[in-house]
Deep mutational scan, measured.
Amino acid sequence: MATVKFKYKGEEKEVDISKIKKVWRVGKMISFTYDEGGGKTGRGAVSEKDAPKELLQMLEKQ
């Protein structure tokens, strides 16, 4: 499965596409929420050019 690499609050993070719950576009950025486990929801964003094609496909399906 594909992963998304991004920075959040200065920390490098990587999340599996299957854990992503919601995806939306903000200008040229793709924002998303994902399941961190333990009932927590994380947030992240990547630029449109750095987003994996699976993430862009999720955006188109909504």
Rank of each mutant, 00 (worst) to 15 (best):
M1E: 09
M1R: 03
M1N: 15
A2E: 06
A2Y: 03
A2S: 06
A2L: 13
A2H: 07
A2D: 06
A2N: 06
T3K: 14
T3P: 02
V4E: 00
V4H: 00
V4I: 09
V4C: 01
K5E: 01
K5L: 02
K5Y: 02
F6H: 02
F6W: 13
F6T: 02
F6Y: 04
K7A: 05
Y8K: 03
K9Q: 15
K9G: 08
K9P: 01
K9N: 13
K9S: 04
G10M: 02
G10F: 02
G10T: 02
E11V: 04
E11F: 05
E11W: 03
E11L: 04
E11P: 00
E12S: 07
E12L: 13
E12N: 06
E12P: 04
E12T: 09
E12H: 05
E12K: 05
K13D: 01
K13Y: 10
K13Q: 03
E14L: 02
E14N: 05
E14Y: 03
E14V: 06
E14I: 06
E14H: 04
V15K: 01
V15G: 01
V15I: 13
V15N: 00
V15D: 00
V15T: 07
V15E: 02
D16A: 12
D16H: 04
D16Q: 08
D16I: 11
I17T: 06
S18E: 15
S18L: 10
S18R: 09
S18C: 15
S18K: 10
K19V: 13
K19I: 06
K19E: 10
K19F: 15
I20N: 00
I20K: 00
I20F: 06
I20H: 00
I20S: 01
I20L: 08
K21S: 12
K21A: 15
K22F: 12
K22R: 06
V23M: 06
V23Y: 05
W24V: 12
R25H: 10
R25Q: 14
R25L: 14
R25C: 15
R25K: 14
V26Q: 11
V26A: 10
G27H: 12
G27L: 06
G27Q: 15
G27D: 15
K28I: 10
K28A: 08
M29R: 07
M29C: 15
M29K: 07
M29E: 14
M29Q: 11
M29S: 08
M29W: 09
I30W: 03
I30Y: 08
I30N: 01
S31T: 08
S31K: 06
S31H: 14
S31F: 08
S31Q: 11
S31N: 09
S31A: 13
S31P: 07
F32H: 00
F32D: 00
F32L: 09
F32A: 02
Y34N: 01
Y34A: 01
D35M: 10
D35R: 03
D35F: 08
E36P: 05
G37K: 05
G37A: 09
G37R: 07
G37H: 14
G37S: 11
G37N: 12
G38C: 15
G38S: 12
G38Y: 08
G38W: 05
G38A: 10
G39H: 13
G39Q: 06
G39C: 15
G39L: 13
G39N: 11
K40D: 12
K40A: 15
K40C: 13
T41W: 12
G42Y: 07
G42K: 10
G42V: 08
G42I: 06
G42Q: 08
R43F: 10
R43V: 08
G44H: 01
G44N: 02
G44V: 03
G44Q: 01
A45M: 06
V46C: 07
V46M: 05
V46K: 02
V46E: 01
S47G: 12
S47D: 13
S47H: 05
S47I: 11
S47L: 14
S47V: 06
E48T: 07
E48Y: 08
E48I: 05
E48N: 09
K49F: 08
K49E: 13
K49Y: 04
K49D: 14
K49P: 07
K49W: 04
D50T: 10
D50M: 09
D50F: 12
D50N: 07
A51V: 14
A51N: 03
A51G: 08
A51F: 05
P52M: 04
P52K: 02
P52C: 06
K53I: 11
K53Y: 08
K53V: 10
K53C: 15
K53F: 10
K53G: 12
E54D: 10
E54M: 04
E54H: 07
E54I: 04
L55R: 00
L55V: 08
L55A: 01
L56G: 07
L56A: 15
L56V: 12
L56W: 09
Q57L: 10
Q57E: 08
Q57F: 08
Q57W: 11
Q57S: 06
M58C: 14
M58A: 11
M58Q: 07
M58I: 13
M58F: 05
L59N: 07
L59G: 05
L59I: 15
E60L: 07
E60R: 09
E60W: 03
K61C: 14
K61M: 05
K61W: 12
K61D: 10
K61G: 07
Q62D: 14
Q62Y: 03
Q62F: 03
Q62C: 15
Q62L: 13
